[in-house]
Design a protein around this nucleic acid. Structure first.
Lengths: 165, 165
DNA sequence: GGTGGGTAGTTGAGATCTCAACTACCTCGG
DNA sequence: CCGAGGTAGTTGAGATCTCAACTACCCACC
């Protein structure tokens, strides 16, 4: 884009390069990670993340809304995903404690087994594509930087329910 | 995940944190960027990127395969996307020069106008969510790091056609 | 000069995602 | 109590994406 119209703070060449590197790098990374999952695992990356969250939760159980927020999924998308995973027996819904609107999602034994079977392949892929590609201090920088980015986006969408519609 | 099974090089706590920061940060960022596009622009982020590529190409024209590779899209997805954009008059297909299998995609005048109308809002969002959030040297680091990540993923998928099926 | 193997792009059906209702519940003020 | 307004989750229809054929073409070798 030529920067003819003024009063818009265009990006300079370096910013442009860096931003595009981010755009392209994440696209390629998530694409390659997805390909690795397709090739050797029975779970998409999204399903895997969902199971991981549950496996870390007390009682292997989490409220739908907590899952949605944590996984950066819309409520609707989570509903559909959980429905599919429930049909496969990986996960089950149970009504929540006090609030009768709430629904809990619980990891089943089968789900745990599937997760454990998938974990090595997943971790190998994350190493191959990310962790082992960077110097330790680069990985740490990436972590710090991405936290800042998370923060800014979170702030922008607070109040809104982009991922909670 | 507890790391009981051995012989898999699990991530240590720091690596885990950094990797998850990347995962969550990109998800939140692209979600927020998409929301910004929805709110003020007539183009999704993907459509915007496609128009940008064309606008930078000689003759505002690019081969489908080049577009697909550059945008990290499968051939099939690009076909569908271009079909929809062509129906909106943003872009047009024309048969390529020497190779009669090839198809060129060209930016139309309308497409250029729409792109120019969208650019300020897009750039503002990228600033707000990324560029202005980071110190200049952080943005530069991010760029370098993401280039390395791109490289690793590209290497992994070379030969394969994950994004060219 | 034709045949085998590759490349470019498309197609359509099924899977997934989005968006806007919609149900059911909670909460709080009056 | 009851009603208004908010929250949790679901639903279904339409949009989009994926995957596996499929068409058309190029190339190189015999």
């Amino acid at each position: 884009m030529a920067s003819t119209t003024s009063d818009v703070p265009w990006l300079d060449a370096g910013q442009q390069r860096d931003w595009r590197a981010f755009l392209e790098g994440s696209a390629r990374f998530f694409d390659a990670l997805g390909a690795a999952h397709d090739a050797e695992l029975d779970l998409t990356t999204g399903e895997y993340s969902l199971l991981v969250r549950l496996s870390e939760a007390p009682g292997h159980t989490l409220r739908m809304s907590v899952l949605a927020e944590g996984l950066v999924l819309s409520r609707s998308r989570l509903t559909h995903t959980v429905t599919r995973m429930e049909a496969r027996g990986l996960v089950e819904r149970c009504s929540a404690d006090g609030d009768r609107r709430g629904v809990n999602c619980r990891l089943t034994d089968v789900g745990l087994q599937v997760l454990e079977a998938a974990a090595p392949g997943h971790v190998r892929a994350v190493r191959r594509l990310l962790v082992d590609v960077l110097e330790p201090e680069e990985l740490a920088s990436l972590g710090r930087i991405m936290d800042k980015i998370s923060g800014a986006s979170l702030e922008e969408l607070e109040g809104t329910d982009r991922c909670a519609s």
